[in-house]
């Protein structure tokens, strides 16, 4: 815990991008998220930490309505993106997901070429008008995901042929290519080596200038390094939420303290 550089972080007071109030999530009879209130600021990296099974992924998936695809899952409460209720009947989850991109816990590139993986989002949303423009988006996205140098000579090779860490960066490039407003990342670095992790963290820091980024992580150091705000979940409850520096140096809840010092988890 000696690499935390907490004090150097400046936390600007940004506008609220997502505001969640009284969110409850049930998987059948299991109450997975219990009455969570949280405000995600724009142009800020928010880290979700907590022991395994506490509901970090579940809550993350509420924010782009990926939970809709799970039959037994039921979401209650109120989540607003720029003031619009995303669970409103008139909201098309497809449009929502174009604005709220996601990188999954396990790398899941399409079994298509590297190029097609990145180009898929822009293609289906009609974001580019010409092939040249699309090429440019693909290159830019791959560069931002710190993958360009490794794959620039084999863009037509299958994305599934990359190493696990490269695949995850490909997935990040794919998510970035649609230029979302919010980027949800579920343990994006769990399959990466320290160098690639550092690259992705750099990328996250860079993305912050344009998006709100929410990252789920099991690494305290990572949360401390990349995030400005941290939310600590425990057994479905949001125990503590605040500025990262404060959570790590001076947590107000004893559970938070036990977790970050390694006593529960």
């Amino acid at each position: 815990m000696n690499d935390m550089r907490l004090t150097e972080k400046s936390v600007e007071a940004n506008d609220t991008k997502i505001s969640a109030r009284g969110v409850q999530v049930y998987y059948g009879d299991t109450h997975a998220i219990k009455d969570v209130d949280v405000d995600i600021a724009d142009q800020t990296v928010t880290a979700f930490i907590g022991p395994s099974g506490c509901g970090k992924s579940t809550f993350l998936r509420c924010l782009n309505r990926m939970n809709d695809t799970i039959d037994v899952c039921r979401v209650e409460g109120n989540i607003k993106l720029d003031g619009d209720d995303i669970y409103d009947k008139r909201v098309d989850p497809v449009q929502l997901r174009a604005k709220v991109g996601m990188v999954f816990q396990k790398p899941n590139p399409f079994p298509k070429s590297i190029y097609d993986n990145v180009a898929y989002g822009p293609r289906i949303h009609g974001l580019t008008r010409s092939k040249a423009e699309l090429d440019e988006v693909v290159e830019k996205s791959l560069r931002r995901a710190a993958l360009w140098n490794e794959v620039k000579d084999r863009l037509q090779a299958p994305g599934t042929g990359l190493s696990g860490g490269q695949q995850q960066r490909l997935c990040i490039a794919r998510a970035v290519a649609t230029s979302p407003e919010v980027l949800l990342m579920d343990e994006p670095c769990s399959a990466l080596d320290p160098i690639a992790t550092a690259q992705v963290e750099e990328l996250i820091d860079e993305l912050r200038s344009r998006f709100a980024v929410i990252i789920v992580t099991h690494s305290m150091q990572q949360a401390a390094r990349v995030s400005q705000r941290t939310a600590f979940f425990h057994l479905g409850n949001l125990v503590e939420f605040g500025e990262t520096g404060q959570i790590f140096t001076n947590p107000s809840d004893p559970r938070t303290e036990s977790y970050i010092t390694g006593r529960i988890g």
Partner: peptide
């Protein structure tokens, strides 16, 4: 694999 469906839905398909 369901992860492929998630991936597609995740980019807004």
């Amino acid at each position: 694999p369901p992860s492929i469906r998630d991936a597609a839905l995740g980019v807004g398909a």
